[in-house]
């Protein structure tokens, strides 16, 4: 049962990712991306990490994807249509991707992944909101705050760099 669920969810995740790459229309690509996020949220649920799953949906599918759609809507329509899908240097990332794939399949072959454990939660039994909060705010408070400040700096930097005074 878990195995079947896992395969369905992984098909959703990987299929969504392929959809992002293969669709020409940027809006359709955004929809495929949300589909893929759903798959990832499903994987979190299978690991009993419901809190992370819901954050995945709220933050990524709900906020960031809407943001991406908004930016595409504000961009000039002709510019959006004239965008090239691949630039001339597309070979190198493709090579890196191939190398990564080869690496992962080699690892899978070497460590002989046990296919009967597919979809089973072998690590932690039940993660909950309170536990995440305690770990983040008791043990890792300083790194957490530093991350927040880094994000804020990036945000303000983007505003400063792109701001133009409208005359």
């Amino acid at each position: 049962m878990e195995g079947i669920m896992f395969y369905i969810i992984s098909i959703i995740t990987v299929g969504g990712g392929l959809g992002v790459l293969l669709s020409k229309n940027p809006y359709r690509a955004a929809m495929w991306m949300i589909f893929s996020f759903f798959g990832i949220a499903g994987l979190f649920v299978m690991l009993h990490a419901q809190f992370n799953a819901m954050l995945q949906i709220i933050v990524y599918a709900g906020a960031i994807a809407v943001m991406i759609m908004l930016v595409m809507m504000i961009m000039d329509r002709r510019m959006l249509e004239s965008l090239e899908r691949f630039n001339p240097q597309a070979y190198w990332p493709a090579l890196i991707g191939l190398a990564l794939l080869a690496d992962l399949s080699f690892l899978a072959y070497k460590f002989k992944i046990n296919m009967s454990n597919v979809g089973k939660n072998l690590t932690i039994n039940g993660s909950n909101t309170q536990m995440i909060g305690e770990i983040l705010f008791k043990h890792y408070l300083l790194p957490f705050e530093v991350t927040a400040i880094i994000l804020l700096v990036a945000l303000i930097g983007a505003v400063v760099l792109t701001k133009k005074d409208i005359s």
Partner: peptide, 29 residues
């Protein structure tokens, strides 16, 4: 029913806007 009802409802509410967003894009300009 789950322990994270509120987050689930918030998530689905955020996604509900996609119907409207796609409606504008799909209407052919």
């Amino acid at each position: 029913h789950s322990k994270i009802d509120i987050l689930y409802i918030l998530g689905m509410m955020g996604l509900a806007s996609f119907g409207v967003l796609i409606a504008g894009v799909a209407s052919g300009g």
